[in-house]
Write a protein that binds this DNA or RNA. Structure first.
Lengths: 220, 220
DNA sequence: ACCCAGAATGAATGGATATTCATTCCGATG
DNA sequence: CATCGGAATGAATATCCATTCATTCTGGGT
């Protein structure tokens, strides 16, 4: 639930010992999901094969079907994992009763959304690979919109609190929340597709600007 | 170069006459590209096959390779078509010397970006299907970023003019332009993936809000 | 009316890939 | 230490799909 770290050099195809190992089901599942993420990022969703994924994970071909029944299901579970990791992280920050200052909480949110963890190319690739198929696959739409809705509600609530605290006039929390999350999504897209023109630094500045224009007292 | 219309009921698998017809190369190419767009929208990029595309176009399997050499190339050309249609439309409006009022030009741009033509599910699906693969396929990145860069420049120029005309203070045209196009991209994503939560009407309101906050004198 | 360049066809080919399952082997248990 | 449930393997299978090309047919030119 909180790995979010390695993913890069996790499974060096063990040069030393190739002895067969038995590991708990949950661990194997995660191993395969991580490998799937790497494969999608490197080769694109449409080019991913089971052989690719299992060998990336340092395992045999049969094992994926043992733990996930089918390729389709493996892909579905991978999307669920990425979606929950992203939205879970956001929600934790937004609820963050440990961070009483609302402006500070906004900052933390922005850091998370455009910081290292989320904007690693790997994760973004996966994210948008699925978005691309979502139009044709209701299953994907459902997975994403389920977690998305909750995050949207939390964001709206946070904005509402900020509006109340700052006594901002003529601002609609709901509309602003939609705008902000759309902006973040769009920035992610830009970082992925035109990294030459949009740096992470500039993406942050743009998002911060949006917030500053809406909540001038809360953003320095 | 300006079709942008039908695409829906174009090629009814002719129930009446199935007589073979010879048509100019350009026409067949467009027919196949249109069919590809429909197939991607309906089945997803990763599930599209040559059979699917050619039968959707009401043609035989061999013809795609005759006109496009390979599936890869057909997909590439389809992306190029969609990208050019979208960005070309934007650029035409932004340059629009026929529309002297800058605020009006902004409105027209927004209408185009979130109006019927562009936000048809079909086109959006295609758009994001390719974005999803762009991380792994430099060819796609190149096609998109080429047209994208030009549109970004025009938008920045338009914003510059508006800033000058309105004597707005403390606003950076470049940053604002990045923000605006990212916002539009994000809204498109929302319309595609969570159509239940984000209507076209609301998407427009959100985008308009962004512009109003930046250029209050130019947007009613 | 006839011809023929080349557009269009679709059966055949070969390569790739998801999925199965008989077999192997680990390691917890008593 | 011997046993055995079930985790792991990977060769084999069946399916699917892009691409080819020998053949058919069309329609403009003469």
């Amino acid at each position: 639930m909180s790995d979010a770290s390695g993913l890069m050099t996790e499974e060096a195809p063990q040069t030393t010992g190739k002895r067969r190992q038995i590991r708990p089901k949950a661990e194997r599942r995660q191993q395969l999901i991580d490998a799937t993420i790497r494969c999608i990022a490197q080769h694109g969703l449409s080019k991913v094969t089971m052989q690719m994924v299992t060998s990336e994970a340092g395992l045999s071909v049969g094992i994926a079907n043992l733990h996930f029944q089918s390729k389709d299901n493996l892909l579905k579970e991978t999307l669920r994992f990425v979606a929950e990791e992203y939205h879970g992280g956001q929600i934790k920050i937004m609820e963050g009763s440990d961070m009483p200052d609302l402006g500070q909480r906004l900052d933390a949110l922005l850091d998370f959304q455009l910081g290292r963890g989320v904007t690693q190319r790997q994760k973004m690739s996966v994210w948008f690979a699925y978005y691309g198929e979502a139009g044709a696959r209701p299953v994907y739409q459902k997975i994403v919109s389920t977690v998305d809705r909750l995050a949207a509600q939390k964001l709206e609530a946070l904005f509402s609190d900020i509006i109340k605290e700052g006594e901002y006039q003529g601002v609609d929390a709901r509309e602003l929340a939609t705008g902000y999350s759309s902006l973040i999504d769009g920035l992610h897209l830009g970082l992925l597709v035109t990294p030459r023109e949009l740096t992470k630094r500039r993406a942050r500045a743009v998002a911060r600007d949006f917030l500053r224009r809406a909540f001038p007292q809360h953003i320095s």
